Amino acid sequence: MIIDTHLHLIYRDRLSYPWLASVPPLDADLTQKIYAQEARRVGIVAALHMEVDVAESDIPRETEMVEALAREDGSLLAGAIASCRPESPDFPAYLDRVLATPFVRGFRRVLHVVPDDVSEGALFRENIRRLAGTGLNFDLCVLPHQIEKAIALADLAPDVSFVLDHCGVPDIKAGGFDVWKGPVSEIARRPNVTVKLSGIPAYGAENWTLEDLKPYFAHVAENFGFDRMAWGSDWPVCTLGGGLSTWIGATHALLSGVSLEDKQRVFADNAKRLWKL
């Protein structure tokens, strides 16, 4: 059983995605139907939709669209991680609306597309602390040099569960292991942070191999263990690094020396617990 905790769907006829123009290979309609055909072949039985950084005015509509897609026959969608703006004074009211929607299981605000000091604002931090007791996790999408900002949030809100996306976004192509490993070790010391084993093939060279990924996987496994690791496809971004089937195959290879129980934790059990699936 595999639960995909990081699926993006793109419907350009329904929502606005300002960033797509800068990534031509992803500037397409990448729908539930396209994803599900391959996902079922590789053993994925459920998926969480991850917000796709739509135009701010479309944030509520994105969640509504995904919830409607989940009601379609044969859908793999089991919930959504919604976009949010913790730096906004409107966040408390938005949180109240989301709490009335059980389909939403968490939030994300992509932090590497905004100035580094956004997450340091008093209002941002106050609003993140509001997640304590809600059962909603907060995904941290940061570059290696910003992990210290993520650490600060985890420390300021110890009762909030955080998820470090894409293993902390290492620059595998440029050999960025040394600048990445220390911050990852440090954030792993926070018990309220889980790492998401997702996205890393897209950060390798075009001809990346399993050997390129092994040191990064070994480092997160050593520091987070398998009780605080969840798998995600990052589809369709993973198509930039070989595709869904390639990433599934690579993950199985990376986990080849791991016990069956730990594999099940990474592929499904931790996701069930974190997102209450």
Rank of each mutant, 00 (worst) to 15 (best):
P170V: 05
I128Y: 04
F103M: 01
D96Y: 07
P115I: 10
A152W: 08
A157Y: 07
I128G: 05
G175E: 08
C141M: 12
G168E: 02
P183M: 04
V160A: 01
F177S: 08
F162I: 04
A150G: 04
L136V: 04
P89E: 10
P115E: 09
C167A: 11
I172Y: 06
G135F: 04
A152V: 13
E126I: 09
V98K: 03
K181T: 15
S161Q: 15
H112C: 06
I151D: 12
V98A: 11
L153Q: 05
A154W: 06
R130F: 07
T101Q: 15
D178G: 09
D96S: 12
N137T: 15
L95F: 08
L95K: 00
A93F: 07
R125C: 09
A100S: 15
V163Q: 05
A152N: 13
T134M: 03
P115V: 09
L156G: 15
K173E: 14
A100R: 12
R105D: 04
V118E: 14
P158E: 01
G175H: 05
F103W: 09
H112S: 07
G133Y: 07
A150Q: 03
E126L: 09
Y94N: 10
E126Y: 11
P89L: 00
R189E: 13
T134K: 02
V179A: 15
F138N: 01
V169N: 11
V184E: 06
G106P: 05
L136Q: 01
K149C: 13
L123C: 10
V179G: 14
F103T: 06
G168I: 07
G182H: 13
V142M: 12
V160W: 04
V184W: 02
R109P: 00
R109K: 12
A154H: 06
P183C: 01
P158C: 06
K181Q: 14
D155M: 11
W180H: 02
S161E: 14
D96V: 10
